[in-house]
Design a protein around this nucleic acid. Structure first.
Lengths: 126, 126
DNA sequence: CACTAAGTACGAAGCTGTTCGTAGCTACAC
DNA sequence: GTGTAGCTACGAACAGCTTCGTACTTAGTG
């Protein structure tokens, strides 16, 4: 079963599920609608499709079904980064990182955080 | 005139134009077809659409028109990274970088390159 | 029981991206 | 001049994503 990456509208919904945890359609709709107006049944339909795709799980025991994300936010982000690296940087993760850093308005503490990660990696190589 | 990010198929074509420079449809088709079989007129149509979108420029002075990318590879990559950061990392470039580094099989020289970049940025802040 | 509110299911339309077949034009070889 | 090879233009089909309207179901209230 090959899973496709979530689409744009699907990501909006996943964002809510990751942030608020398992939610009803009403909950998700309220959150999404607040950011970008959209019909209730649109969100419902999306969630139904996402169930079929295996992106979310549905608990139908209560009258209002409760939906939860299947993949964690981290795993999904990793997936999307991998796709971008392949599509746009010919598989070079380094290319992506350099590009991102160039255009990043990073603060000093953030830079330190990256530096720490680099040190870890270096240590782990031996 | 708002420019949309290039689609998947469009990126395949841009990759050829960036690599080989201004090219005829035949040239582009041969390169793309080699990687992923596709009809000649498909590539032609795509290029025509890309002209309308402003993604490529066309020199129609010769019988075989010559197409060239409008935006540089770097600028396009930056654009796509920015989009991903907004869509998937809530605008946090740092989030993207950390994620990428975590899953990156970076070599020591590559890590050094990143470190150099970090030093530059740090220096530039004061 | 009858009514209403809140929920789910589903069909279908509109848009974009991708693909290709067909038609038509033109330079060149003979 | 005639034919052919190579090119551009264009319409149309198909697929995926997104959106919503409508129909159906059910729990609760009087």
């Amino acid at each position: 079963m090959l899973k496709r990456a979530p689409t744009n509208a699907e990501l909006e919904i996943l964002r809510v599920l990751w942030q608020r945890g398992p939610s009803t359609v009403r909950h998700v709709h309220e959150s999404v609608d607040h950011v970008k107006p959209v019909g209730y049944t649109t969100v419902l339909k999306l969630l139904q499709i996402m169930v079929e795709k295996g992106l979310v799980r549905r608990d139908a025991s209560a009258r209002s079904h409760v939906y939860a994300a299947v993949a964690s936010q981290g795993a999904t982000q990793r997936r999307l980064v991998r796709d971008l690296v392949r599509r746009v940087f010919g598989g070079s993760t380094l290319g992506l990182v350099l590009h991102a850093l160039h255009s990043a308005p990073a603060t000093a503490p953030e830079l330190d955080q990256i530096r720490r990660l680099l040190d870890e990696k270096k240590g782990g190589r031996t």
